[in-house]
C-alpha cells in the first residue's frame, strides 16, 4: 500500500516532460548521426578497405611506412603494399586479410632483438654528458663506447617503440619478447642498426655484432664474440657458420638444443625460447 501511495505522489507531469525532451534530443541527434554517416560516406571507397582495417592490429605505429592503419589498409587493397610490411598484426588476422584480398599468405611471424649485450660490460672511450640521443652521441667518433659497433644505450629505440617493449638495462637495450609487435620502427631508428628481425620461434640469439678480431674484442668488452668458432663446431645440425668474425644462425636448421649456448666461452649466444 505504502509504495502505491508513493506512486500517486509522483508528479507525473515532470516525468513525461523530461522523457519527452530527452527522447526528442536523442531522436534528433540519432537522425543527424545516421543521415551524416550515410550521406558523407566516402563514395567509391572500396568496401574491402574497412574489412581489412578491421583485421589490422590498429596500433597506428607507422612501421609499414604509411600514416597509420587506415592508409595501410587502402594501400593493401590497391595492391601497393604487402601484408608482411605490417609486423604488428598477428598471424591468423593476416591470413584473414589475405583471404579478403584473394591472395595467399605464408609469411613467418617475426620479432626484433638487439644484437648486443655490452652496456656496462663494455669499456668507454670517453665519458659522454651530452644530449641524451643515440644518433647525436654517434656523431662524436661513433659513440662513447669503446666498441664502435655496439649499443650506445641512450634509448632512441625505447622512445620510438609504440608499445614500449624496449627497456635500457645496464646501458644496453633489451627487447621484451611478449610486448614486441615487430613493427620495425626500432630497426629503422637505431643509428648503429644492430637491432635484427628474427623469427619469433627462434630459440637462440647471437648477442654481439662486433666484426673485429678476437684479440681486439677481448680488450674492450667482457661479453664480446672472439670468433673462436667453437659454437659452429659443436652444433650437431651445422646451423651455425662464421662470417667476418661473427656466428650466423640459420633458424631453418636450428632445433634450439642449446649446446652452443653452453659451449660459448664468452656466453655471447643466449637461450630465449
Amino acid at each position: 500500500m505504502e509504495s502505491l501511495m508513493l506512486l500517486i505522489q509522483i508528479n507525473w507531469r515532470i516525468v513525461i516532460i523530461s522523457i519527452g525532451i530527452t527522447a526528442g534530443v536523442a531522436l534528433l541527434m540519432g537522425v543527424i548521426i545516421m543521415v551524416i554517416a550515410n550521406v558523407f560516406t566516402i563514395k567509391g571507397q572500396d568496401p574491402r578497405i574497412d574489412d581489412v582495417k578491421e583485421n589490422l592490429a590498429g596500433a597506428n605505429c607507422g612501421g609499414c611506412g604509411y600514416a597509420g592503419c587506415s592508409d595501410f589498409a587502402k594501400a593493401l587493397v590497391e595492391g601497393k603494399a604487402e601484408i608482411n610490411d605490417c609486423g604488428a598484426t598477428n598471424k591468423d588476422n593476416k591470413i584473414k586479410i589475405a583471404s579478403i584480398l584473394g591472395k595467399q599468405f605464408s609469411g613467418e611471424e617475426m620479432i626484433s632483438v638487439v644484437a648486443c649485450n655490452g652496456g656496462i660490460n663494455c669499456a668507454d672511450k670517453f665519458e659522454y654528458k651530452g644530449y641524451c640521443d643515440c644518433a647525436y652521441a654517434n656523431m662524436h667518433s661513433s659513440g662513447p663506447k669503446a666498441c664502435n659497433s655496439g649499443c650506445i644505450g641512450l634509448g632512441n629505440c625505447a622512445s620510438v617503440c609504440p608499445v614500449e617493449a624496449i627497456k635500457i638495462i645496464d646501458e644496453v637495450a633489451v627487447v621484451d619478447r611478449d610486448r614486441c609487435i615487430a613493427c620495425g620502427l626500432c630497426i629503422k631508428t637505431c643509428p648503429k642498426s644492430i637491432i635484427k628481425s628474427i623469427p619469433k620461434s627462434a630459440q637462440v640469439i647471437v648477442a654481439c655484432c662486433n666484426e673485429c678480431k678476437g684479440k681486439e674484442v677481448m680488450d674492450i668488452c667482457k661479453v664480446g664474440c672472439i670468433a673462436c668458432g667453437l659454437c659452429a663446431r659443436v652444433c650437431p645440425h651445422a646451423a651455425i657458420h662464421l662470417e667476418n668474425n661473427l656466428p650466423i644462425i640459420d633458424y631453418g636448421k636450428c632445433t634450439g638444443c642449446g649446446l652452443c649456448v653452453d659451449k660459448c666461452p664468452k656466453n655471447v649466444i643466449h637461450k630465449v625460447g
Binding site: I19, T22, L27
Partner: peptide, 26 residues
C-alpha cells in the same frame, strides 16, 4: 538499419530518463 539504430538509441534514452525522472521525484 539506420532506423533500427536510432530506435535502439531512443529506447535506451527513454529507459534511462524514466528511471531518473522517477528517482528525482522520490
Amino acid at each position: 538499419e539506420s532506423i533500427k539504430t536510432i530506435c535502439i538509441l531512443v529506447a535506451i534514452t527513454i529507459i534511462c530518463v524514466a528511471l531518473l525522472a522517477i528517482l528525482n521525484d522520490v
